[in-house]
Simulated scan of single mutants.
Amino acid sequence: MKQLPIAQVLPELKTILNTSAAAVLIAEPGAGKTTGTPPAFLDEPWMAGKTILMLEPRRLAARSAASYMASLLGERAGQTVGYRMRNDTKVGPDTRIVVVTEGVLTRMLQSDPSLGDVGLVIFDEFHERSLHADLGLALTLEAQAVLREDLRILIMSATLDSGRVSAMLGGAPVVDCPGRNFPVETVYLPGSGDRQLEHSAAAAVRRALAEQPGDVLVFLPGEREIRRTERELESSALPPGTVLRPLYGQLPQAQQDAAVAPAIPGERKVVLATSIAETSLTIEGVRTVIDTGLRRTQVFSPRTGMPRLATVPVSKASADQRRGRAGRTAPGVCYRLWSAEEHARLPDDTVPEIMETDLAQLALELALW
């Protein structure tokens, strides 16, 4: 971990949390914040044998981060480092770092508001602003204020308005860390309006395989588009040794692991993914990103009183996160399936989930709290 940029700022971060109740870490992609930060605090005096909880928005990223941190210690997940998520838990009596998904943190706070055996709560990738992450932070802040003055809170992100978050935390110190991204060339490939998404994505994949080295990561809005693009590519002649790997939240774990794992020698991997691959996850071998510029989200409909799934354009911040996936291990290229003019019109940031989703569940959680 010494070779990663995060090592440069860990001493400063330790000094801050030794005397402060909260801190904000802004670390660019490739800095190593997700897997490098939690282990650094295990032996701090104020931890006194307590546990570190790290909130990771996505199940795949949570499992991957825990496994990687465990490997750095020469262990398997479930020993010093473990994880908790719905229907999948690996923790043991000696576990000191627990990576949890969003709903799990809320349940833990509801059952034990003081988080008695926890010394530090880390909110990773907080810029995604999911409803569960916002709620988890609100409950943790109240627990800290009322029950646990000694509880520390650390918010981490690559793209975040650090001033606003610091103010929300009572003027918490902000630490900036450079990343370790390699240069990424951006190529705009606007398509015609009458061309279906899977045709445009498949054409970009064929071009990337012909023009660029390494593996390819394609961002698509959902499982339906992934399967359609997969069929489109399977119906055409791909270079020998090309393998297609879908990657989305409902995929069985073994298939998710196959998508993330390095390609075997002699193969080139094309990963067809949702935004699950946007942050906190390095897919080894990827040198090219193809971004359709779309994401799927739940939007509350006042007319029906029910949430519905909507496909919407990504924000500039999200597009930059996706682009950065091509430069994690070597120089890369990002093909964007829209024009530079369309890019200029994208919103700067993704709308927080609390602004567009059904709040009935949130009201029930707050009533229980």
Rank of each mutant, 00 (worst) to 15 (best):
V24C: 10
A23S: 10
A70D: 13
A40E: 08
T19G: 10
M54D: 11
W46H: 15
A31T: 07
A70C: 08
F41H: 12
T80D: 00
T80I: 01
G74L: 06
G36W: 11
T35W: 00
S67P: 10
Y83R: 04
G74V: 02
M69I: 14
G78V: 07
M69W: 10
R86H: 13
W46N: 14
A48F: 02
Q79L: 09
E28D: 12
T80E: 00
V24P: 06
L55K: 09
S20T: 07
A70S: 15
A23T: 09
L72V: 07
V81Y: 02
A65Q: 04
N87D: 07
D43A: 15
P39E: 01
R86S: 09
G30S: 01
G49P: 05
L17P: 13
S64C: 02
G74N: 10
G82Q: 11
L42A: 07
S71K: 07
A31Q: 02
D43H: 05
R58M: 07
T19W: 11
L73T: 02
T34N: 05
G49L: 03
N18C: 12
A27L: 00
T34H: 13
I26E: 11
I26C: 10
L53G: 02
Y83F: 15
G74I: 03
N18F: 04
Y83H: 05
A77Y: 01
E28G: 11
S71E: 15
E75Q: 15
P38S: 11
F41E: 13
K50E: 07
R58S: 08
T51Q: 13
P38F: 11
K33S: 02
A65W: 01
G78K: 04
R76A: 12
L55I: 10
A21D: 03
A66E: 05
A70K: 01
F41A: 14
A23W: 09
E75F: 06
E44G: 06
D88H: 15
A65N: 02
A66M: 01
L60Q: 08
M54V: 15
S67K: 15
